[in-house]
Design a protein around this nucleic acid. Structure first.
Length: 579
RNA sequence: CCGCCCGUAGCUCAAUCGGAUAGAGCAACGGCCUUCUAAGCCGUAGGUUACAGGUUCGAUUCCUGUCGGGCGGGCCA
């Protein structure tokens, strides 16, 4: 209880409010941390909030509230300021109590129970397994993983999921690309389609298949036969690709599934390994194809049909999404009988809720924002509450090299991979860098800056504070666990109290980050806490001769290290003992 | 043309769901290592919050409009 200063202050204020303005007790009490220390540890605008209802001067109301504040407790004194603010100053004992709370809770300090905690699914990355992850995926990965950690720490039961697009045309293009490279290894060469996958990893997969199975998958293919009858013309590149895919399926027959499956397994495995090294883990990898295999797509479409939300036009089956605020209606089943990606997406989202998630968070690239209306519309049409689905849009990271924007195209194999980035700047810097901006904000990723191992990387600043704490504790050499019992009364200096007050903010910061789906507030909090610590470290000596003061400062020190470690853990960044 | 996101110090970004004198880092300048790690600290300088109105005790925040930037607007994913 001493740990949660805010609720203690809030309760005191509420008690005063009950006697001053009994009719206004249902007004929420907002406490903020003033920017200036002269304005106290907390400030409330409650008097201004109720001034209109009471038809009285806010300053007078504030004066009476201050007089009615209960004596004792965590509040040392209160002042009325400005237009009617109540500035509240806390006792040193109240501020320092957090140190003991941190040391007692350890790794669990900051773990909370959000008022709206429930079962929530976070689906993120979900990149097509058609090649290596690039730096754009990296941002979604870092954001999603950090958000999931934050939600879990805030009391939610979290499911982390990756949606595997293993059923679409893109996978067919990858299978075709692989097979064409494979044929080339046996001298069967045809011009490699410009819109197929160009990357070297495709050639690597072709070699693997050759090394394991020899010429088994050539199946008498010839360049001439494959090229025969292809649509001509500059506008027909996509059609040519589809014709080549059809050709590959015809020649390979049953074996097409092997090439397709091999490419999928290879790329998905690579992706999984990449993410694991990045500290990003999933509880479930959900196959799009399984939605078809188990009839879920048909079922979802049938449900929409039964509810009267579908109609036939031009041979295609349309969902009347305009009825739910979308700009135009959307096709769910094409004229050729194939379901669209949207159809499986409807089934997928219905399935998420069928699995018992009370809330679902989708993390998408910002270029998908046009899909929000139709997916939410489909949920509504299925009788589900669209408010239970939250879509977090992550803006793309724009790369800069030598001050120039780096163009990226997956198809052309021209991109900086997540793996390259991790190798250059390290996992820690990459993870922190990615969540240092609000997710819906454009991220200018300066490769030269990120690559430079200079102190411009903010990760060092935070980690350094942690390493310094460890260093002091090593120098002291005592039993760190005993610090939880240290007498904290000697902590009375302004920097010590400011540091303790900052520690007490951690719990609320975690809840804020969870509520707003904004892990970046954790990063900013850690920067502030580190700054407060560095300032204290430079101004005061921790290992002083006086034993009481020394123990108290060591306890404070260790509490800072603990909170930094806990915060960094949420962001997937390591907390090194030495640097 | 329409929709979504955005516009804050020279640069990259914050600003506690409408609060008090808009804050950090980098870059610039001046200081601090015989003492727990200088990847650090202290100080100086830097602003009409794109622009114009509106809402109220109070606006970077909410509303309208203008300008400027990004992304979308397939029976593609």
């Amino acid at each position: 209880m001493a740990d949660d200063l805010k609720s203690a202050v809030s309760a005191a204020l509420r008690q005063a409010l009950a006697s001053v303005a009994p009719d206004c007790t249902d007004v929420p009490i907002v406490l903020e941390r003033p920017k200036q220390s002269a304005h106290g540890d907390f400030a409330s605008n409650i008097a201004m909030q109720i001034a209109r209802a009471l038809r009285q001067n806010p300053r007078d109301i504030a004066q009476r509230l201050v007089r009615e504040l209960p004596a004792g407790g965590v509040i040392e004194r209160a002042e009325v300021a400005g237009a009617g603010f109540i500035n509240l100053f806390l006792t040193a004992a109240a501020k320092c109590a957090v140190v003991r709370a941190v040391l007692t809770a350890g790794d669990d300090y900051g773990r909370g129970r959000a008022a709206d905690a429930c079962r929530v699914q976070v689906e993120f990355v979900s990149a097509n397994p058609t090649g290596p992850l690039h730096v754009g995926h990296g941002r979604g990965a870092a954001y999603g993983a950090s958000l999931a950690n934050v939600l879990q720490f805030a009391g939610f039961t979290v499911g982390r999921e990756y949606y595997v697009n293993d059923a679409g045309r893109q996978m067919d293009i990858l299978a075709l690309s692989t097979w064409l490279r494979y044929l080339a290894l046996f001298g069967i060469e045809l011009p490699f389609p410009p819109n197929a996958y160009q990357g070297d990893y495709v050639i690597a997969m072709a070699r693997t298949i050759r090394d394991c199975h020899g010429e088994r998958y050539v199946k008498g293919a010839s360049a001439a036969a494959l090229l025969a009858g292809l649509p001509a013309g500059e506008d027909a590149e996509e059609a040519r690709l589809d014709a080549l895919i059809a050709g590959a399926k015809r020649v390979l027959g049953e074996d097409y599934a092997y090439v397709h499956q091999h490419a999928l397994a290879e790329q998905l495995g690579d992706c999984r390994e990449d993410l694991a090294e990045f500290g990003v883990h999933f509880d479930n990898w959900f196959s799009e194809r399984s939605l078809y295999d188990t009839g879920m797509v048909e079922k979802a479409v049938a449900t929409l049909e039964r509810r009267g939300h579908l109609y036939l036009q031009d041979g295609a089956l349309w969902f009347r999404s305009t009825a739910f605020g979308d700009e135009k209606d959307r096709v769910v089943r094409r004229e050729n009988g194939q379901y669209t990606y949207f159809a499986s997406d409807i089934a997928y989202h219905a399935n998420k809720f069928e699995r018992g998630f009370e809330r679902v968070i989708d993390i998408w690239g910002a270029d998908h924002h046009g899909y929000i209306a139709r997916v939410k519309g489909a949920l509504t049409a299925l009788g589900l509450d669209p408010a239970r689905l939250h879509i977090a849009l992550v803006q793309f990271a724009v790369l800069y090299r030598n001050g120039q924007k780096v163009g990226m195209s997956t198809r052309a194999g021209q991109f900086v991979t997540l793996r390259e980035l991790r190798g250059e700047v390290g996992n820690d810097a990459a993870r922190l860098f990615y969540v240092l901006r609000k997710s819906d904000q454009h991220l200018d990723f300066d490769l030269d800056l990120a690559k430079s191992q200079s102190n411009e990387n903010p990760v060092y600043y935070i980690q350094y504070a942690h390493a310094r704490v460890c260093s002091v504790l090593r120098e002291w050499g005592g039993e760190a666990d005993e610090l939880a019992g240290a007498d904290l009364a000697p902590l009375a200096g302004p920097r010590e109290l400011a540091l303790a007050a900052r520690l007490a903010d951690f719990r609320a910061t975690v809840l804020d980050a969870a509520t707003d789906y904004a892990p970046h507030v954790i990063a900013f909090y850690l920067k502030d806490l580190a700054a407060e610590f560095h300032s204290f470290y430079n101004a005061e000596r921790i290992l002083v001769d006086a034993p009481e003061l020394r123990l108290a400062r060591l306890a404070l020190c260790r509490a800072v290290g603990q909170v930094i470690a806990n915060g960094l853990r949420l962001l997937g960044v390591s907390a090194p003992q030495t640097m």
